[in-house]
Design a protein around this nucleic acid. Structure first.
Lengths: 330, 330
DNA sequence: CTGTTAGCGCTTTCAA
DNA sequence: TTGAAAGCGCTAACAG
């Protein structure tokens, strides 16, 4: 293992000088010594020991990213956005996946705290479980007390910088657009009861229907993924339009309807939420609410990195996109 | 910032004792002291400083994962598999995305070396650029000389543990299956010329056709993503079957044919490669070659973590899956 | 501009 | 078992 000291000796300079040229110091070093050091470093194959550097500096070049599931394109898009800004700032990203277990989220915050990462980004819906949220906040507070920065994509429940998708408003706008097409009987593939993102979307959709004087929708719970959408869709009947609270569930619903011989949109209209890029080529193309996922991930990390007194909440509006999976009733 | 020393003092024990109880030492500590230390740590809110630990131990609990693009479900699936084994081993994962720039891959290896990660996992096709490969190997060798472990998912070109998908064989098997359906005129949406995964699939497919005495396929190059498939497909004509060298490109091709009013599979059959789970609900369902992506990612990390004398190469066979996007010719 | 030196927080012999 | 103390490799005053 080649150390800075080896390089310094090899170059015939002091440790400090070697440090200054090799690791971004503001201090200047004379051209000749600089060249010597660089040569020695190259010859010896020196690589900075980041652990030592972090210890000495008291600050690391790593940020933490906690997502529910990387294979869910929603999180992949969010992560991609965040990783691009990390790259620009020369930061490495440590990723943890919770597989939707809130306990693991807390554990990751603790681990990332131990790693002394510069910032932690929590992506994904909060849960309705108050106790879990309390413990998460506790862990986050501990981390922040020691100088850690935190941002979150999701509900503003943690008292940290937050990029909050306007789930209620988006779902409400979607409901109105669907009502405008003539739909009156709705079912919602609602996801898990405890997931706030799912709840908010259900609530916004339902409230809008109510305001329009339309009958309350049939609400079917299930998991927040493709299979949840499939399962819930098998229980749908007697409605002209189905709202799946995310695109991935909508894909499951389309599959279920296909298997049941129910045509979309002729027999039933289907809408989703998120507008996942990978799913844009679906047939029939999915009516949905577009969220700028990559930008949201990027924005969240920017917030975390940009120190501020108060926690900021950035609300992100969704845009209703009508496509072939929903049709106008005549 | 609470340090181990604070905890030790608070508990009235030595630094060494506190270290032994808080951080997995094999050494035993008496029950009463142990309890005192744990209490003090909890009261003070102590969190291990991993940088200090890494420096003192000379080994970290982090592994590096370098992928081309996280939003590509191929890499997401690979990453997911790898991250699950990391989780089991209590390892954190540092992720870098190259966005298909081979230079960045080299840079990441260097950075991960500086981080002294336990192992580096390189996921994704190698390039045909010999100079880039040489420099990558150089960087990897330097890392390995200092005790780093490396594994790769892709072509066995780096002299490290490798999980190598049988691209040639899979593509050949696919070609034979398609020929069995009666197809004679083929086009290949071939991806970039320099990408070995793409090359191997083209070569395997072409060789099989040749062996069967069938005419050589039309080979159309393009990017390795959805748009590459779309673009290439716009240039297809006069064939009954199109092979896109990956599923994501096949999706692009389906979109292009749809836009051109060409029906799949009635007018033209389309096949892909990979069998991306997220894409299984596509209509028409895609004929493809199934690769156990999550398992491949997991296996690669296992290889890297399991020290061995010789570099091992694990070949992974693909399984041809015939679905609706290809039809039998009569 | 360059060098000396005191830590950063933890692990790990070595003694007791 | 427990404790004392010597580092791990690097940074950042401080002095020159």
């Amino acid at each position: 293992m080649v150390t800075l000291e080896d390089v310094a000796r090899h170059a015939g300079v002091s440790l400090a000088t070697a440090s200054r040229v090799l690791n971004g110091s503001t201090r200047q070093v004379g051209a000749s010594l600089r060249a010597k050091v660089e040569l020695a470093a190259a010859q010896l194959g020196y690589r900075t020991n980041v652990a030592a550097q972090t210890l000495a500096r008291g600050a690391s070049n790593v940020v933490g990213l906690v997502v529910h599931d990387l294979t869910d394109p929603y999180f992949a898009a969010l992560a991609d956005g965040a990783m691009r800004v990390a790259e620009n700032q020369e930061l490495m990203v440590m990723v943890g996946t919770t597989h939707r277990d809130p306990q693991r989220e807390i554990a990751y915050v603790s681990t990332l705290n131990a790693q002394r990462v510069r910032a932690v980004l929590l992506a994904g819906s909060r849960t309705a479980d108050q106790e879990v949220t309390r413990r998460l906040r506790e862990e986050l507070d501990r981390y922040r007390e020691s100088g850690g920065r935190v941002a979150c994509v999701g509900q503003d429940l943690l008292g940290v910088d937050t990029v909050a998708p306007a789930n209620r408003e988006g779902a409400a706008a979607l409901a109105r657009a669907l009502a405008r097409l003539g739909h009156r009987g709705f079912a919602i593939l609602a996801g898990p009861e405890g997931l706030l993102t799912a709840r908010d979307r259900v609530a916004g959709f339902t409230a809008a229907l109510d305001e329009l004087g339309l009958p309350a929708p049939l609400v079917l719970h299930g998991s927040f993924d493709r299979d949840g959408g499939y399962q819930a869709a098998t229980r749908v009947s007697g409605v002209t339009c189905v709202f799946a609270v995310n695109d991935v569930m909508a894909v499951g619903a389309l599959a279920a309807f296909r298997d049941r011989g129910i045509r979309v949109p002729e027999d039933v209209s289907v809408a989703g939420f998120d507008d996942i890029p990978t799913l844009r080529d679906l047939v029939p193309a999915l009516t949905t609410v577009r969220l700028p996922l990559a930008r949201m991930g990027a924005r969240a990390l920017e917030l975390a990195l940009d120190v501020a007194e108060e926690a900021r909440v950035v609300s992100v509006a969704g845009e209703v996109v009508l496509r072939e999976s929903t049709r106008a009733l005549d």
